[in-house]
Design a protein around this nucleic acid. Structure first.
Lengths: 187, 187
DNA sequence: TTCATTTTTTGATATAAGTCAAAAAGAAAG
DNA sequence: CTTTCTTTTTGACTTATATCAAAAAATGAA
């Protein structure tokens, strides 16, 4: 919890009453490796803050898993599409490591927006940051070669390489596992 | 202006005083084809609402233009990274058609957040929507073939095909112009 | 209309990356 | 330690897409 509060203060400094209300709305979850936070078809009604651990989001395409994001310490994770629209999720969220999370329901978060302008500000700022990160990821993914994408990962997100299996990383990078293995073998 | 107000009401219904304050902060711009809203190296201090026209965002890679987004009627456009961080932009924003825009400066928008909680809510909701649209675009871009990406564009954004030159569309789809031409020739 | 410029198409060839199959290496279980 | 199962690597081959070059078509100006 301390860690969550520490992290969100890098986005925006909440007032004491807002922090207190937020505290009241959060629920701690401890889950083991390979457990699911969400499976496709469900509506995602929770937003999670990942205090410790690793998580991936993936969906099925032609019978294969496509991993399209990872979450680690200090990340907010949810199926954004489902959480925002209230529609059934097309993605699955699975733990890659045993993890400690803080969950808040959409209803409680919505209520907090009404009661505390600064919580809505914090979330607005968080969305801004998540938006530009995604935009960067998009540009890197679409307009660069497999090798360049791997080199970027090595440079900017080496923790992913240390904690996630090659198959999932290859999928995340949008390349085959064999190609990734070959790229890697030529340092 | 009517159109902007109409459009934002699909996100969230603002109070009368908020609408009035927003009205006071907007500035109308009419620009011609090929004019620039922003060139790389500048800090983007404005957010634009595109009432009528067409716009593209692109950056330079190995001497070539890479078009990574288009804007049309009812879109909010800016260099999000630069606007949000205040850093110099790596992208250029150029008009594809003569356009009518409404501009708001970051300073004025920030002031509006303080004065009107509901304007911050509107923007938070807009970011949510833009985030999930970008996420969809990301998944489509990275995990599908050139043909599938083109078919998607044809299905979901046919207006792009009618209004934008093939070279820019190919760049947007992350494929060469020749390949796009060949895909298209086989209906 | 005619000429010049830009955009799109077509052809030949090269290359990055995928697929299928099997071997090797690593991790887990008894 | 073996045995088993999973993950990673290697090899041979295929395929999608890029690149380079030139022709054709479209657009725009005079």
């Amino acid at each position: 919890m301390q860690q969550l509060f520490q992290h969100i203060s890098t986005y925006y400094k909440l007032s004491e009453p807002a922090l207190e209300a937020l505290y009241e709305s959060l629920e701690k979850k401890e889950l083991g490796r390979y457990e699911y936070l969400l499976t496709q078809g469900q509506v995602c009604r929770q937003m999670y803050f990942l205090e410790k651990g690793a998580i991936r989001g993936f969906y099925q395409l032609d019978g294969k898993d496509i991993t399209h994001w990872f979450g680690f310490e200090n990340n907010f994770v949810t199926s954004f599409h489902s959480f925002i629209t209230g529609e059934a999720s097309v993605e699955n969220i699975q733990l890659e490591e045993s993890s400690t999370l803080w969950a808040i329901s959409k209803d409680k978060l919505t209520a907090l927006y009404d009661e505390h302008h600064d919580i809505e500000r914090l979330v607005r700022i968080a969305y801004e940051n998540y938006y530009i990160k995604l935009e960067e990821r998009y540009v890197n993914a679409q307009f660069r070669s497999a090798k360049e994408r791997y080199d970027d990962l090595l440079k900017y997100s080496p923790h992913i390489l240390e904690r996630i299996s090659l198959g999932h990383i290859a999928s995340y990078l949008g390349i085959s596992q064999e190609t990734l293995s070959r790229i890697r073998s030529k340092h």
